[in-house]
Write a protein that binds this DNA or RNA. Structure first.
Lengths: 195, 195
DNA sequence: ACCAAAACGGAACCATCATTCCGCATCATG
DNA sequence: CATGATGCGGAATGATGGTTCCGTTTTGGT
């Protein structure tokens, strides 16, 4: 999950166990990076991330080959988080409710990461999200089958909505949830028309 | 419109006419900047803009106080273009058709500038668009009055849609119009529900 | 407690631009 | 055509920030 550069478990035999501080710092670095990116955007300097983490820059470079890799790691983390949400939504016996809950999650998620969600978005390659996209398609199909969405609605439509939510959230200057919630409600109405 | 730094018309008397090449370059710089930003995004270097223009960097700096000013000038240009479109839409006797045409224009406009539309967007201050926003509100109100949109729809809803279009267009990897067109159609359906 | 390996800190280094500056070319004028 | 002002090119400068390196500190093992 954190994809450290040094092998966590050494299948070979002749080396020591990793030091305790090193393990601790893995998480500290990621968290500091998330926090700093969240408030300064993706152009935040490595220096500021290091100082937030209470570490030296060198320590970051021991774990991530560079800033790109750090951003990528966080992006991957976020994809996983969304993926888990999609999975949870699929578990809801009511497909309509599941979909609504998922979209709500996406909105709230974006709200937290307003400053750099967009930057992370065009970092993830197509096949890093293919699994998640499969779930979204399934979620959509279930909602169609249940008569919650119009018959011609596809996963691509929901994907577009997800992207749009990101835009709407990022554009709002404050933390106010109301605008994107209203936006989603309106769009869902459009997706339901003609059932 | 190009807001050159040097006074174009000299109200005082004792100076020469501007040189012909200087006048020509005003437009060349802006066009080169637009072209380069369009294909490289807003982090394109001044150097690359200059070389595209067939000029030296110094020439750019004689007209624009810096890169920021250059970006700002282009942003202002774009706001004007959208503003003119809103004005044209208002002239349509059929408010619904006017609104649809306007949204279509916005989509096509974004498609052209996919790479840096977002960057320009958060460059324009609130009151630089207040005039345009007034027109959008008017456009919306007309559509509501004509029974094209549901009664509770406001200019803010259309603004959100405009922003969302930008996101959807930017996310699409290719030039394909179909996705954002479908997105707009669906959302408009939602905005019409409950008339 | 002692040693060697593992990690750390952060100064030094380096690449990448934006921006400035000035000698040279070009233009308007008479 | 001569001339001086106007505008131009592009090397030099400076700042910023990513990345590397190595002396020092911490940790695990004995």
């Amino acid at each position: 999950m954190l994809t450290p550069m040094t092998p966590r478990t050494n299948s070979s035999n002749t080396s020591r166990a990793p030091r305790r501080d090193a393990l601790r710092n893995d998480a500290i670095v990621i968290n500091a990076a998330r926090a700093v990116f969240a408030e300064q955007g993706p152009q935040a300097s490595m220096e500021s991330i290091a100082s937030r983490a209470g570490l030296g820059v060198g320590t970051i470079y021991r774990r991530f080959s560079g800033k790109d890799a750090l951003l990528d790691a966080i992006a991957r983390l976020f994809v996983e988080e969304i993926d888990r949400a999609a999975e949870a939504a699929l578990a809801d016996p009511d497909p309509g409710a599941g979909l609504e809950w998922f979209l709500d999650f996406v909105g709230a998620f974006n709200a937290e990461k307003r400053r750099y969600a967009a930057a992370l978005a065009d970092r993830v390659s197509g096949d890093e999200v293919s699994e998640t996209m499969d779930r979204v398609r399934q979620l959509t199909q279930n909602a169609v089958d249940a008569g919650y969405l119009a018959p011609d609605v596809t996963g691509e439509d929901i994907k577009a909505l997800i992207i749009a939510i990101g835009g709407v959230v990022a554009a709002a200057p404050d933390e106010d949830d109301a605008p994107w919630r209203r936006f989603v409600r309106i769009h869902l109405t459009g997706l339901r028309a003609g059932r």
